[in-house]
Design a protein around this nucleic acid. Sequence first.
DNA 1: TTGAATTTTCAATAATTTTTGAAACTTTTA
DNA 2: TAAAAGTTTCAAAAATTATTGAAAATTCAA
Lengths: 166, 166
Amino acid sequence: MKLSEAKQKFIDSWGTFGTKWGINRTMAAVHGLLLCEEQAISTDEVMEKLGISRGNANMNIRALIDWGLVKKVYQPGERMEFFIAEKDIYKVAILITRERRRRELEPIREILKEVKEVEDKTAEGKQFKKMVNEIDEFAGFADNILEKLTKTDRLWMLKTFKKIMS
Amino acid sequence: MKLSEAKQKFIDSWGTFGTKWGINRTMAAVHGLLLCEEQAISTDEVMEKLGISRGNANMNIRALIDWGLVKKVYQPGERMEFFIAEKDIYKVAILITRERRRRELEPIREILKEVKEVEDKTAEGKQFKKMVNEIDEFAGFADNILEKLTKTDRLWMLKTFKKIMS
DNA sequence: TTGAATTTTCAATAATTTTTGAAACTTTTA
DNA sequence: TAAAAGTTTCAAAAATTATTGAAAATTCAA
């Protein structure tokens, strides 16, 4: 396999992978492209390499910046903005996990908290409360782990891994 | 909040939550509904309670069965099929994690394995390989943890939790 | 067997999500 | 300050994904 072919395959797959994680295909493809590029590249290069419009490129680059996965850099003498991806995959994983926790776990916990307060003494009501409580307890468990995981560094992660495996 | 209102809110939110996890809204809503029901219910009840068509109800119930989240049961004297959800939230989490690992992590690892084999001695090629290798190493780390997590039970999970937190 | 009850399939339609591209806006240079 | 260079916005269009509903297939009781 040639390098250009391998890069293409990686970028496409990263895009497809993104869709399964609730991220849109193009955002993930832009991320994949930037992971492949050692140097910062411009919006025009992203547009050209992925064959997408300026608006689309701009929006998805901004989204990646919001997630903390991409940084804006300026080239000396250049007026244009250039972009570079965080390459440390542990940091990438932490950033993604942190954002997903915030966007997915927190909202559901709020809902669970609300519906737990239901006033109902019937058997049906008790069963519902029990079910909701168990989900919330589990969500708390997951939340704690994710918080620890995302507040830490590679070393802690490796240590934890060893602990778990022992 | 009344019980019916709380259930409705829970079901709707579970549906929305699903969309963020790459599951379609209706599949998650059917799951939410079944989590609320102590007894097994029929396709017709699912259709009626969620206001969806027979085809839609059928497809999403089958999908939930594929994931192992729902079981088909027969009521004595009834020809119709009834469905009941797994209520143990730890088991639910394990089933979902197992399925997502299979659908999301495995395919990307296969791609990484392929693109790692690129023949290229240039600096650019080396950098690409290094990047892909790091991702694959991390994916392996995640894979191991998920495998352990999903091959085990609630007790192991709690023990692990304590280990991590200490 | 037969046929009524039930489940499944899938082409057509609807709903949702993504993308485009040009206008508006902002920043920088001359 | 003017205008060129670059960035952002967003309504309309395109693409994708989900849903319907009726026909086909299956199951089961008689």
